[in-house]
Lab assay of single mutants.
Amino acid sequence: PDFTLHWNGITIHFKGIDEEQFRHLRELLDRGVSLEELEELAKELIK
């Protein structure tokens, strides 16, 4: 499924991740993950 997340004025689209992965990403963003960390995470998910 696809998810869209609005965070700090940025709209991020996640394609092909499951709800569990999306929930994990939201928790990280709510905790204050940096954009660099988010990019690293995205690379991991894409593999």
Rank of each mutant, 00 (worst) to 15 (best):
24 H>D: 06
37 E>H: 05
27 E>L: 09
10 I>K: 12
43 K>T: 10
32 G>Q: 04
21 Q>Y: 04
13 H>R: 06
43 K>N: 11
37 E>N: 04
24 H>P: 05
9 G>C: 02
12 I>F: 05
26 R>L: 15
19 E>T: 08
1 P>Y: 14
17 I>A: 03
24 H>I: 15
35 L>T: 05
19 E>D: 14
35 L>H: 05
31 R>V: 07
8 N>Y: 04
32 G>F: 08
28 L>N: 03
28 L>S: 08
27 E>G: 08
41 L>M: 06
44 E>Q: 04
32 G>V: 12
43 K>R: 11
8 N>V: 02
8 N>Q: 11
3 F>A: 02
39 E>H: 09
6 H>P: 01
27 E>T: 10
15 K>Y: 14
32 G>C: 04
14 F>P: 00
8 N>S: 05
41 L>D: 01
35 L>G: 02
18 D>V: 05
26 R>V: 13
5 L>G: 01
17 I>N: 02
5 L>W: 05
7 W>E: 04
31 R>W: 11
45 L>H: 02
44 E>L: 05
24 H>L: 14
11 T>S: 10
2 D>P: 11
3 F>H: 06
4 T>G: 03
27 E>M: 09
12 I>H: 04
32 G>S: 05
5 L>F: 06
1 P>E: 11
33 V>L: 10
40 E>F: 05
28 L>E: 07
9 G>N: 06
32 G>T: 05
39 E>V: 13
30 D>C: 01
45 L>Y: 14
17 I>G: 02
15 K>C: 02
3 F>R: 04
11 T>C: 05
29 L>T: 02
47 K>P: 15
31 R>G: 10
32 G>A: 07
21 Q>W: 07
46 I>H: 07
16 G>A: 04
20 E>A: 13
26 R>W: 09
38 L>I: 15
26 R>D: 01
31 R>H: 10
44 E>K: 01
1 P>D: 10
28 L>H: 07
13 H>D: 08
6 H>L: 10
39 E>C: 01
9 G>H: 05
32 G>M: 07
30 D>I: 12
40 E>V: 05
35 L>P: 07
21 Q>R: 03
9 G>V: 01
27 E>Q: 09
14 F>E: 00
8 N>H: 11
37 E>I: 07
11 T>A: 08
36 E>W: 06
12 I>M: 08
17 I>Y: 03
11 T>R: 04
42 A>Q: 04
46 I>A: 12
33 V>A: 14
10 I>P: 00
19 E>S: 12
20 E>R: 10
29 L>Q: 05
2 D>L: 13
20 E>F: 12
45 L>T: 05
42 A>W: 15
40 E>N: 06
30 D>R: 08
41 L>S: 02
39 E>Y: 13
38 L>M: 05
30 D>V: 09
31 R>Y: 10
30 D>Y: 13
47 K>T: 15
19 E>A: 13
45 L>C: 07
21 Q>D: 12
34 S>V: 03
40 E>H: 05
22 F>K: 06
43 K>P: 03
15 K>D: 14
47 K>D: 15
5 L>K: 00
37 E>T: 09
37 E>D: 08
4 T>I: 12
40 E>D: 09
45 L>K: 01
23 R>P: 03
34 S>A: 07
38 L>Q: 00
22 F>C: 05
29 L>I: 08
16 G>R: 03
12 I>G: 01
44 E>I: 03
11 T>K: 08
15 K>W: 14
15 K>L: 11
32 G>D: 03
11 T>Q: 09
14 F>D: 00
14 F>G: 01
28 L>F: 08
41 L>T: 05
45 L>A: 07
2 D>R: 02
14 F>L: 11
37 E>A: 09
35 L>Q: 05
41 L>I: 15
41 L>Q: 04
34 S>R: 04
18 D>Y: 05
46 I>C: 04
21 Q>C: 03
26 R>I: 14
4 T>S: 11
4 T>A: 12
31 R>F: 09
5 L>E: 01
12 I>Y: 07
29 L>S: 03
10 I>H: 12
26 R>K: 14
27 E>H: 10
20 E>K: 13
38 L>V: 15
25 L>N: 00
6 H>D: 09
8 N>I: 03
27 E>K: 08
5 L>Q: 00
29 L>C: 07
36 E>C: 02
26 R>C: 12
13 H>F: 07
18 D>R: 05
44 E>G: 01
1 P>M: 15
12 I>A: 04
33 V>S: 10
4 T>R: 08
38 L>D: 00
42 A>S: 03
7 W>L: 13
13 H>S: 12
44 E>T: 03
40 E>Y: 06
30 D>L: 12
24 H>G: 06
7 W>P: 00
29 L>G: 01
1 P>C: 14
17 I>K: 01
37 E>S: 05
11 T>P: 08
1 P>H: 13
18 D>P: 05
10 I>G: 06
18 D>S: 15
12 I>W: 04
7 W>S: 12
28 L>I: 09
33 V>F: 10
5 L>A: 02
14 F>N: 00
36 E>Q: 10
38 L>T: 01
35 L>F: 09
29 L>Y: 11
45 L>Q: 04
9 G>S: 04
30 D>H: 13
9 G>I: 01
45 L>M: 15
38 L>G: 00
41 L>F: 12
23 R>G: 09
9 G>W: 03
36 E>S: 11
33 V>H: 08
19 E>N: 09
21 Q>G: 13
9 G>D: 06
17 I>S: 02
26 R>S: 12
7 W>H: 14
2 D>N: 12
24 H>M: 14
26 R>H: 10
16 G>T: 03
22 F>P: 00
37 E>Y: 07
6 H>Y: 09
8 N>A: 11
47 K>R: 06
21 Q>N: 08
46 I>P: 04
29 L>F: 14
25 L>K: 00
3 F>E: 01
20 E>T: 11
21 Q>E: 06
37 E>G: 03
47 K>H: 15
24 H>K: 12
1 P>L: 14
39 E>G: 03
22 F>W: 10
19 E>V: 10
38 L>A: 03
17 I>L: 12
40 E>L: 07
6 H>G: 05
23 R>Y: 11
27 E>W: 10
20 E>G: 11
3 F>S: 01
29 L>A: 13
6 H>N: 11
7 W>M: 11
33 V>C: 03
35 L>R: 06
14 F>C: 04
39 E>R: 09
46 I>W: 06
38 L>C: 01
41 L>W: 15
24 H>W: 11
7 W>D: 03
41 L>H: 04
2 D>C: 01
18 D>W: 04
46 I>F: 10
6 H>C: 03
1 P>A: 04
23 R>F: 12
31 R>M: 12
28 L>K: 05
3 F>G: 01
33 V>I: 13
